[in-house]
Structures are given as C-alpha cells and as structure tokens.
Amino acid sequence: MRLTLEVWRQLDAQTAGMFETYEVPDASEHMSFLELLDHLNESLVRDGQEPIAFDSDCREGICGMCSLVVNGVPHGPQRATTVCQLHMREFNDGDRIVVEPWRAGPFPVIRDLVVDRTSFDRIIEAGGYVAVNTGGAPDANAVPIGKDEADIAFQAAVCIGCGACVAACKNASAMLFVSAKVAQFAHLPQGQPERKRRVRDMVGQMDREGFGGCTNTYDCEGACPKEIPVRFIAEMNRGFLAAKITE
C-alpha cells in the first residue's frame, strides 16, 4: 500500500506544533497502525531525522497506553478497537491519513503524539479505590454478590484508562472514565461504605484538573475501545447529587 501521513509534530508543551507530511510507499495491509509508524520511524532514523514519538506498550489492546487520533477519531475508524489493534487493511491504497495526539487541556502534549495523562491517576488517587489494607480480609465467599450485579460492575471495570473518551469529547469531559470507576464500586458491596465520599472526591478532582462537563453527545461511548456505556455517567450524576444533598 502507498499511504500519505499527515502527522502532528511538536517538540514539547511550550512549543507550537505543526503537521508534517510523510509518504509511506511500501506499507503492508497486515501491519497494525503502530507498526506502520514503526516502519516510518525506521526510515526517518536511517535518513538522519528524529522519529515520531508515540506511546504504546502491550500492543494488544489492554494496557491503554496507545493514544492516537486517526482521521479525527480517537483510536481510528474501527469500533471497539485500540489503535494498536487497528490494522492497515481498514484503509485503502493511496489514502491520506491524519494522525494527531489526544487534544485536551488536562492532557498536555509531551512530544509529538505523546501526552501527559497523569491527571487520570490523580482522579483515582482522590478516591478510586476501596480503602482496605492488606491482610485481614474476610473469606472471599463470605459476601455473595449476585451475578447480574457483578456483571454490571465488571462492565464498568474494563476501562483501560486510555483517555479516548476525553479526546472524543468537545468539552474534554472525563465523565465516562470517572463514572466507570465510580460504577464499578457502586455495584459491589465492598464499595458501599465510601460510596458518597468516593463520587464527591473523584468528581472534585476531575473538576480541579480542568476536564469539562458532559453535554450528552455520547461521543465518548462511541470512541471507547471497551464500549463502556454512557449510562454510567447518569448513574454517577445521581450518586453525586445524592452525596451532595445528604452531606
């Protein structure tokens, strides 16, 4: 395949970035999108240029590190797929492909396509856990949890923390990410004692980080590689309100 890539290049958060155009004359349809970038980088390095910086690690769709906007869509055109699992056969010979980083104030660019997502970690640190020390836990079967509730908790727990929901949102809202963690614990008995405190503290931190609010366009759900549903946002809003008025 012959492809033309328009790739965002940016030295650091302080320096303005710009698109650079690269021709890839010999891509294979079996390459993953990241392998296409590897391939391009090899030729850039051989030509004495600096390679394009981008994040990735597991390359099997679970670590959440890869984070590219491809043709305007976080993780690219294939639904329920991280960009590391997106393969070039989804594109056509001769295509022009635009590659950008996640764009959101709380995700400042580190270099090229790499952004700083530590704001997500700080939201979890504010309350995304069950406060239990190691040791002394009761027997795992002491508290039965109905399969239906456990399945809902699981559906929320699959979040990989990639940030595609934020990148997709015109408000740069992190509410799908935050609500997934809130919902995981809200649907489990272990999460009940801190339920109110958790939603209040996590939403508070989300606001302090500068993420926007939700205006129900649902782009986050469409971009989520794990298809986490937006109804968790509604659940979180109810929980947040309940926590506030009973404070």
Partner: peptide
Amino acid sequence: ENIIDQCVAQGVPFAREYGGHL
C-alpha cells in the same frame, strides 16, 4: 488463599455463579 480474599475486598470483579459465589 489470602490473595483471593484480599482482591475481593478491594472490589476486584471476579467471575461469579448466579448464587453469588466465586
């Protein structure tokens, strides 16, 4: 054995039977 207890206490959503047990 302690590991499973600890993880459940943390809210790790292991697979369960309809009766609610692991």
